[in-house]
Simulated assay, not measured.
Amino acid sequence: MGPRRTHRKSRNGCQSCKARKVKCDEARPQCNNCVKHGVDCIFSPTPQGSSTAMVLSTTAGVVDISETSIASPMPTVDMTDMELLHHYSTSTCYTISKHPVLQTVWQITIPKHGFAPQSQFVFRGILALAALHMGHIKPDLRADYFATAEYHHNAALKMVSTAIPHINEETGPAIYVFSTLTCIIMCAMRRNFDEFWTTDGSLFKWISLIRGNRAIIYSINDTLKSGPLAPMFVLGHRRKLAREARSTDDQPFLENLRQEIIESVPDQDELQCYLEALDNLAKSFATVFDTQLVEITDVFIWVYEASDGYIELLRQQRPEALVIFGFFCVISKQLESAWWMEGFSIPLIRAIYYHLDEEHRYWLQWPIQQLGWAPY
């Protein structure tokens, strides 16, 4: 006997028939089922010069994508921005905080503020921070990413400048988010700390920005503490209460500085500003030395709560004010595991050191030793 013949069923056939789950006779130029039901057949030839229609088979049936839908103008997508947004949501957002809840806020909640038409400055801020992070990861492309970050951040600053005078319950949270982003961006964008005390003034812009958040919080306090950003404030309040409860007794390095300042400052108002700054600094030292996971709040709260009097003395480059800020560098060092704070403390204390006379340089010996820096 010869080989047994089997009937092969065609694996082809018209997609319209398959979608209707009927047998296709594969007749050309159109199958009979399509002719019967009055639908376009895949076997039907397309006349030259006519527009192309695409038929997609789905579980719901046949979907016709006509020329009009294909030819409609489509918005362009900036793939560079998409890359930065993807990088932010998969990497950068996890570098801002070590707390799992706050990481989720930075990944999920913060970007939502950037999608509203009136607060796209947040979206630009996110792109700027992501670009700086990419530049940190890819040093050979750092200049390009830095330029991208500057472009987005400058555009955001123009947008937010028109929103700040009209801050309200609706726009306030986005402005607060952008202000916080900008504090981080300025740390990541710093170039030359030696300029902080002279022409550039970046340090005081950064300080003013941190302290400026107080006005935003006060103006929309209830909205921030009850809205989507509430976890940031709930956890921040808990850390502040723990900070206030810690003992500051065993800090001889600050006691020595306190005595030096008391003996050298005759003006009582000025002296009071320094002593308040030292009391507040003692709480920060107690916090960072007794905390495994140091958060932004633990470090920046000292700048946030410093008196206007002390900040003005710092702006005037009074030696006692500069020395106190030099001690703060030991605290800021605790955040340098984050890429955007990396290399922050030593260049800053170096800039302070070379703005002091010989006597006050000796006052900086303890923070210099803690940071492992040697004057040259």
Rank of each mutant, 00 (worst) to 15 (best):
L254D: 01
S72M: 14
P111F: 08
I349Y: 06
V55T: 10
L271D: 08
Q292D: 14
E312A: 08
K18R: 09
W340I: 00
P231H: 09
P29L: 02
L356H: 06
A53G: 04
L241R: 09
H133P: 02
N12R: 13
A71K: 12
A351M: 06
T92Q: 09
D200R: 13
V22E: 13
Q268W: 13
R124K: 15
S161V: 01
L141C: 07
E359W: 14
A374E: 15
D40L: 07
F253A: 00
R211L: 02
G2L: 15
D250F: 05
Y274V: 02
I184E: 01
P367L: 06
Y310I: 01
H166Q: 11
I70T: 08
V35R: 10
R238E: 11
D298N: 10
S72F: 15
Q251V: 00
A143S: 10
P111Q: 03
F146P: 02
V234R: 01
H99A: 01
V303C: 07
I65P: 01
L271H: 11
S161E: 11
S337H: 15
C17S: 09
A53S: 12
S337R: 03
H37I: 09
E260V: 12
P347I: 07
D81K: 13
P111I: 05
P73R: 14
V101T: 11
H87P: 03
R361E: 04
H113N: 01
L335W: 00
L313C: 04
W373N: 00
W363Q: 03
H99E: 06
K9A: 07
K240C: 05
K138R: 14
A163D: 03
V35M: 10
P347G: 08
H136P: 00
L356C: 03
C187G: 14
A242Q: 12
S66G: 13
D40I: 06
I301C: 08
I349A: 06
I217H: 01
T287I: 05
I217G: 02
V62P: 00
E312Q: 12
R191K: 14
N154M: 13
P73T: 13
F178D: 04
V294R: 00
T171A: 05
R246H: 12
R124W: 14
I324T: 10
T180W: 08
I175C: 03
S10H: 04
M54K: 13
N168C: 13
D40A: 11
L56D: 08
T171P: 05
K205P: 00
L293Y: 12
L203H: 06
H86T: 10
A215Q: 07
Y151M: 07
V62G: 01
Y94T: 02
A131C: 02
E342K: 13
P100Q: 06
Q365V: 07
Q120I: 06
A60W: 07
L348D: 00
L293E: 12
